[in-house]
Amino acid sequence: MGVLRFERVLFAVVVAGLAGGCTSSPDSEPVIQDPPPSTAASAPAWTEPSAYSFVLTRGCDAAAPLGRYQATVSGGVVTGSQRVGASAAAPTASAAVDLGPATGQEGEEIEVPTLGELVAMAETAEEDGAEVATEFDLTDGHPAKVTINVTDTADGAECWIISDYRRG
Rank of each mutant, 00 (worst) to 15 (best):
M1V: 07
G2I: 09
E7A: 11
V9L: 08
A16C: 09
G17M: 14
E29M: 14
E29H: 13
V31G: 05
D34N: 12
P35F: 14
S38E: 12
T39F: 04
A43T: 02
P44D: 08
P44G: 07
A45Y: 01
W46D: 01
P49A: 12
P49T: 10
Y52H: 12
Y52E: 03
F54R: 12
T57D: 02
G59H: 06
D61N: 14
L66M: 09
G67C: 05
G67H: 04
R68M: 13
T72E: 11
T72I: 10
S74D: 07
G75M: 09
V78L: 09
T79G: 04
A86D: 08
S87H: 01
P91S: 09
T92Y: 02
L99C: 10
G100S: 05
G100C: 08
A102K: 02
G104I: 09
G107H: 05
E108D: 10
E109L: 14
I110Q: 04
V112M: 13
V112L: 13
V112Q: 13
P113Q: 10
T114H: 12
G116F: 03
G116P: 01
G116E: 08
L118C: 12
V119D: 09
E123H: 07
T124L: 14
D128F: 11
G129Q: 09
G129K: 10
A133I: 13
E135Y: 07
D137M: 09
P143R: 13
A144E: 04
K145G: 01
V146P: 00
V146L: 05
T147F: 01
N149S: 06
T151Q: 02
T153F: 11
D155Q: 10
D155I: 15
G156F: 03
A157P: 03
I162M: 10
I162A: 10
I162P: 06
D164S: 15
R166Q: 13
